[in-house]
Write a protein that binds this DNA or RNA. Structure first.
Lengths: 161, 161
DNA sequence: TATTGTTATACTCTATAACTATA
DNA sequence: TATAGTTATAGAGTATAACAATA
C-alpha cells in the first residue's frame, strides 16, 4: 500500500529515484532520436566533447569491452561523427575525436536536453528546485570521493598526444 | 568553469540529475547481472510485480513497440520467468504474469537495489534525505498528471480478466 | 474496419575468442 | 611476453512492415 503524505501519494525514495532515472534516461533518448542517435552513440559524443581518448580509454569511460568500442566507433565514423587518428606516442594506439558534424550534434542535443530537465522540474517551487540541485550534488560528490573519481576534470580543450 | 558552493564544487542541476540517473541505472544493472538479467528484462519483471497486463499495455508501460514486447516476453518465457495466458475478455489479447521463479528474482533484486540506493544517500543528513524523497516524488507526480499516467495502480494482486 | 499480437527482416549493441601489430 | 586494436561470431534488443485472428 502506497504511503500517503498530506493529500497526495508519495513514492518511496527508491521507487522515486528509480523512476526519475528512467524518465531522465528517456528524455535524453528522445532528443538523441531526433538525430537518429542511440543513447550509446550520444554518450560517445558526450564523452568526446572534452577528451581525445584512445580506444582503450574510451572503453573504460563507457564501461565497454574493446570489441564493443571498435564497433561503436565504426558506426559513428561511418556516419561522419567521429574520426580515428594514429597516436604519435604509441604505434598500437588509436585516438578518437569528434568531427565538426559530431560537435554540432552535441551542441544541439545538450541544451535541448537541459530544457527537458528544466521542464520536468518546473512544477517545483524555487526553493525545492534549489534544494534538489544541492542535495543531488552533495550525494554525487560524496559518492565520487568514495570511488576516487574526479567529478571535475581539468577540461583539456585541445589536448594532443 | 564549475560554480563553487561553499568549499565544495557543485554540479549544475542538469548535469547532476543526468549523472545521478546513469549511476542509479548502473546500480540496477549490476544487481540484475547477478541473475544474468539485462536492464530491460529486469524492468519487465518489476512492472509485472503488481500488474497482469496485456502485451499491448506492457508496450505502453515500457515504451516499446508491440513487436519488441513479443520478443522480450518470448525470451523471458523461455527462461521461465513469465507466462502468457489468453484473456477471458478479449480473444485477441494475451495476459502476461510472473511465474514463481520470476517473482523470486524480483524479491531478491529489489531489496538489494534498495540497499544500493540507501548507501548512495547515506552521506546525506536525515533531513536532506527526506527532502530529496519528497521533492523527487513531487516532480514525478506532477509529471505523471501532465501525461495522464497513473503512478499508483490499484495494485490488483490477483486481477483476472 | 480496427485492434491485438506474431513473424520476417534488418540494424544496433554487447561480449568472448582468436587474431595482427607494436611495445 | 604483454598490450592495443580489429574481426568473427553469437545473442539480446529494437523498430518497420506484413500478416492472421478477433472485435
Amino acid at each position: 500500500m502506497p504511503p500517503r503524505s498530506g493529500q497526495a501519494h508519495e513514492l518511496t525514495t527508491v521507487d522515486g529515484l528509480a523512476q526519475l532515472s528512467f524518465l531522465i534516461y528517456q528524455l535524453l533518448e528522445r532528443r538523441a532520436a531526433a538525430h537518429d542517435l542511440s543513447i550509446v552513440q550520444t554518450r560517445l559524443l558526450g564523452v568526446l566533447r572534452d577528451r581525445r581518448p584512445t580506444m582503450n580509454e574510451l572503453g573504460r569511460l563507457l564501461s565497454l569491452d574493446k570489441s564493443s568500442v571498435s564497433g561503436l566507433v565504426d558506426r559513428a565514423e561511418r556516419r561522419g561523427l567521429v574520426e580515428r587518428s594514429p597516436s604519435p606516442q604509441d604505434g598500437r594506439a588509436v585516438l578518437v575525436s569528434l568531427t565538426d558534424q559530431g560537435r554540432a550534434i552535441v551542441a544541439d542535443v545538450a541544451p535541448r536536453f537541459g530544457e527537458d530537465v528544466a521542464e520536468l522540474l518546473a512544477p517545483l517551487s524555487a526553493s525545492d528546485g534549489r534544494a534538489l540541485s544541492r542535495i543531488v550534488s552533495r550525494a554525487l560528490v560524496a559518492h565520487a570521493e568514495e570511488q576516487g573519481i574526479d567529478l571535475f576534470p581539468a577540461v583539456p580543450v585541445d589536448r594532443r598526444r
